[in-house]
Design a protein around this nucleic acid. Sequence first.
DNA 1: AAAATGAAAATTAACATGATTATTTCATTT
DNA 2: AAATGAAATAATCATGTTAATTTTCATTTT
Lengths: 197, 197
Amino acid sequence: MLAQTSLDESCRGVNNLVGSDIRALRKSRGLTIIDLTSALGRSVGWLSQVERGHTVPSVRDLAAIAAYFDVSLNFFFRSAHQNPEEQGLVLRAADRMAIGSSETGLSEELLSPTLGGSFEMIMSSFAPGSDSGGPKAARPTEDGGVLISGQLTMWIGALKVVLHPGDSFQFRKSTYAWQNEGTKPAVVIWVISPPVY
Amino acid sequence: MLAQTSLDESCRGVNNLVGSDIRALRKSRGLTIIDLTSALGRSVGWLSQVERGHTVPSVRDLAAIAAYFDVSLNFFFRSAHQNPEEQGLVLRAADRMAIGSSETGLSEELLSPTLGGSFEMIMSSFAPGSDSGGPKAARPTEDGGVLISGQLTMWIGALKVVLHPGDSFQFRKSTYAWQNEGTKPAVVIWVISPPVY
DNA sequence: AAAATGAAAATTAACATGATTATTTCATTT
DNA sequence: AAATGAAATAATCATGTTAATTTTCATTTT
């Protein structure tokens, strides 16, 4: 009894993280447990247990989930080698993972240690000469950001602005577009609330 | 009739910004219009009109409001010289205002163009050798940040972490403390949801 | 002429209630 | 130890009710 509990606990940390990532991914896409399990061919009870770290999903299942949500399999283990105490609270620069559909010219890395929060921090790098290819559909979110380096032209709704380092922006449920007319990557700390990944 | 409307409209933009700043400050402190007006000695109807840009408060009233909320008077006009179109959406680096109680060793500048959003972005600079002087009481907020430069030791609840540039963190309703043991300022892009200023 | 007031009107927030859906639990099987 | 399926629990949603807050506007003040 004691040995079992101890073993459970030793895995609980990482399992909880994987589980809450799955839950956050599912919720950010507006899916119920039923929706996801029917897509995965697993039972409702099973996913409930997985999401709360009571059951360890097989690698095969995890891979199916990762594919379904379009994240890499190792995304779930991005902090696994870190001190368990700080998992979910701190994300080291070296452990950041790429996320988002790979728009050409845009690379995004998740800064938030967990997906389960009320907002999500992302480091976006816009390649020189790249653009969004027209306005992106408005999301039901609030977005904000700070330009860290480079130069970036943004369209927020009907407004066009040229951002320089240190400039910041924030908007709600608006279409937006971007273009990097400079010669260096434009790096933005981007905040989205609620999370979309 | 036309001339009146035009004059009204020419002021509406900046008035709306001042008004919504006041409203956001009031809400972030959990006050009702009645609470604030009784502190100011003004009527409820007046504040309602001020907050929505229908009435222009006197400088004397604005100063009283600024003092009450512990912000500078020019805080309300931080973007006044900018293109009206981008006011409330973009904040230029040069227009950033200091906010927050002036803890020694910590300087905070508001990055969010408006206080009315669901989260607030702040640039915090922690002076070399400074610290928070013990843990800060937990707020009913979710906090997150990225260390841009320098080095910063943080305590999040019981966890102690030494952050290096690029490291990020996020926590909910937790006590925290900080200390800059380095020789350079530690600069953090800090996000708070919901806003507290 | 615009600001300020005060009170009526309108809107919004805070609580209950039941109905519905979603999630968790757990005895059992794989 | 993982996985299932069904019962138990919990969360969500629509609805109605009341209280609190905010807006509006006719009037007064500066």
